[in-house]
Design a protein around this nucleic acid. Structure first.
Lengths: 269, 269
DNA sequence: CGTACCGTTGAAGGGGGTCAATTCGAGTGG
DNA sequence: CCACTCGAATTGACCCCCTTCAACGGTACG
């Protein structure tokens, strides 16, 4: 707990904004050009700030003056219900936007909490409109980013549509793996940055159910689970299992020792 | 079924595009100016097309060349899973945008089906960028619309977070009422445009459970249910009931005859 | 009048929520 | 180094709620 009272204050206590991070910059990819070219085009430099683990990037209800582009690290997007229940809306990693729901009325409708030490670019909303005007091609990129954001609703619906905790957990793992693959990382060995509670809140389950699901999927030989280290052992069967949204049937592919009969799992029907 | 094979073809068979609809135009509100002023600014006219009940505005996977602004009527946004299960992602009415998830890669990730005879404005994506450049103030309005769209993820999460079919149904009713209020319509007497199956798919429940939930909420005196005609009898208690997301407890406020004791329902506990 | 679909209600069965105990690891201070 | 604490993660047991299967009434339509 290097953040005693998680607050935006921790931002001020962070290291001074840097100009260019170690690997490829998420900002450059969004702009569609290297930072040097952007500077030459007369664009003001974009701040890159550090967010400590457990710190809140922005609070629910706070005025939304800027959006954030994740350069490194991971966040959870949460909303606290009127009853105090913390609902995890989404997880966001590199190249993803945070805070766009604040566009609606100028106030954030969710909070973003860093799951680990992270770095984000700060893009004032006023800058965004100017970028659309000045940078040719940025409009398209910005629209694409918005499209991916809107598509998140579909992903979430896909998650929640599955009945059965195991199916839902399987879909979560597949979704997470897909995002890792999009970042060029391994989609077999996953390093979950969030705890079981956060996963459970995201999936609408009890954290015990998530734990049980992981165990059952591992018992079935689909996954190897070691705390937050996940390895997909049999992607074929995992996807087949997650495919059918409805039906408690096909309870779990437990002990399907049959080797390559991928057509149908050898459950007794 | 006036649409034998629901298809975009029905669009061509629709009445010729009109220029101005009867009441206030959703397009004018998005543009921030009357259509006459927009025309004077050199903007090309925007097509307003009719979509028959049951017709598909755009299909999943189809190339996304334009977004649609609902002027009248209602749509359901659906995604068909690989297993053929139809998942309702959202419902969209007047003043709402359809097809923005296609921004991501140029292809629609969901389909839009008209629940009744509807009218939509067709906004080519290329036009949108030009509007941002030419129309002062449009950028802000467009951002706000995007923000509302992104905020939908939070609404959906709020829906699904509730455990218990009754709570989830109650939240759906409240959400629907809120949208009706935003349109200036009555938020007490609701006219659901979608069937129980669609609601169930949207809430991740069996359609029988939705039906039962409506009956139980009606039995508790919170709602009056007559097929698709819903009336909110006691908004106070309905919101209190929907408030707590978790806990099967407080099963249902059935037969709470006690008049004004709103602090705690008089269940035997 | 028959068909088809929607909406409602009943009965049975199982999955997951809740509560509870246990293990394990990290951090802390003796 | 060890005792202690705290939290995360796992596992077990019980029981309610929801899914599923089934039947029934109502309405639109040919």
């Amino acid at each position: 707990m290097n953040a005693p009272h998680p607050s935006v204050v921790s931002l001020a206590a962070a290291v001074a904004p840097i100009e260019l991070p170690p690997p490829a910059s998420a900002l450059e990819q969004l702009l569609g050009m290297p930072a040097a070219a952007a500077a030459a085009a007369g664009l003001p430099p974009v701040a890159l700030v550090r967010v400590a683990e457990g710190a809140t990037l922005f609070h629910e209800g706070a005025p939304a003056r800027s959006v954030h582009l994740v350069q490194a690290g991971h966040f959870k997007v949460v909303r606290v219900g009127e009853d105090g229940y913390e609902q995890v809306l989404d997880f966001a990693g590199r190249h993803e936007l945070l805070g766009c729901d604040g566009f609606a009325d100028g106030h954030h409708r969710s909070a973003a909490v860093a799951l680990e030490e992270s770095w984000v670019y700060v893009l004032p909303v006023a800058e965004l409109l100017r970028l659309c005007h000045q940078l040719p091609g940025f409009g398209r990129r910005w629209q694409a980013a918005i499209g991916r954001l809107v598509a998140r609703t579909g992903e979430m619906a896909w998650l929640m549509a599955a009945v059965g905790a195991e199916k839902r957990t399987a879909r979560f793992v597949l979704l997470y793996a897909r995002r890792m693959a999009a970042l060029g990382l391994s989609s077999r060995r996953l390093n979950l940055r969030m705890g079981r509670r956060d996963i459970a809140s995201h999936l609408g389950l009890a954290h015990e159910s998530v734990s049980r699901s992981f165990s059952l999927l591992a018992e079935g030989g689909l996954l190897r689970v070691d705390n937050r280290e996940i390895e997909i052992l049999d992607r074929e069967r995992l996807e087949a299992f997650a495919r059918c949204t409805r039906g408690y049937g096909e309870p779990a592919p437990r002990r399907a020792r049959g080797s390559a009969a991928s057509a149908a799992t050898a459950t007794s029907h």
